[in-house]
Design a protein around this nucleic acid. Structure first.
Lengths: 87, 87
DNA sequence: ATTATATTTAGATGATTATCTAAATGTCGG
DNA sequence: CCGACATTTAGATAATCATCTAAATATAAT
């Protein structure tokens, strides 16, 4: 929660790749895992970090858990970065 | 050099604060140090990380070294983040 | 030249983190 | 109910990192 976690979450390349994957829509944890060579435990950890940073949210549907981008926090970062340039 | 270093550099709160300080213009290393309670060695390390990420550049003037924001890399980040929103 | 000032570099330490394996939880189909 | 599947949690390990003290480098002033 807060900039600290959000920026730290974006600092890892695997997590940025996860976010890029989710750009096109919801994906289940398994779908995401299959894009990487890491363990499901490792990806699960990354998902948890992203979720804790409010960058993604999850929704349980039966056996699966679907992850989705949370654009509102992305807006906040955008504001912060944009402010660096202005004036 | 590259996103990896840039995002990782922004993941630290002290470094983000340094960047915010530099938003209003050049500052010497000592000026920057005086804004924090950390050692000059520590701040020097942070400056080196930011410089390595191309987020800032330095210029030596006599006894002092002045640091300045490098907006071009900030643009790249802006593009990346913006792309997350626009479908 | 010598001393003081500005900054970095070297080396060490404790904390955080990414990753793994193994075990636990939860859900579906027969 | 049971075995298979989807996902997370627990615990361990190795790597990375922020920070410190102490030493090095470089420049200015006296």
């Amino acid at each position: 929660m807060g900039f600290q976690d959000t920026f730290k979450a974006l600092g890892d390349p695997t997590r940025r790749e996860i976010i890029t994957l989710l750009k096109h829509g919801k994906l289940s944890a398994g779908d995401i895992v299959s894009h990487f060579s890491s363990t499901n435990a490792t990806i699960s950890h990354h998902l948890s970090v992203l979720k804790n940073a409010d960058l993604i949210c999850d929704e349980k549907v039966g056996k699966y858990i679907y992850y989705e981008l949370n654009t509102s926090v992305i807006d906040e970062i955008l504001v912060w970065i944009t402010a660096l340039k202005g004036d």
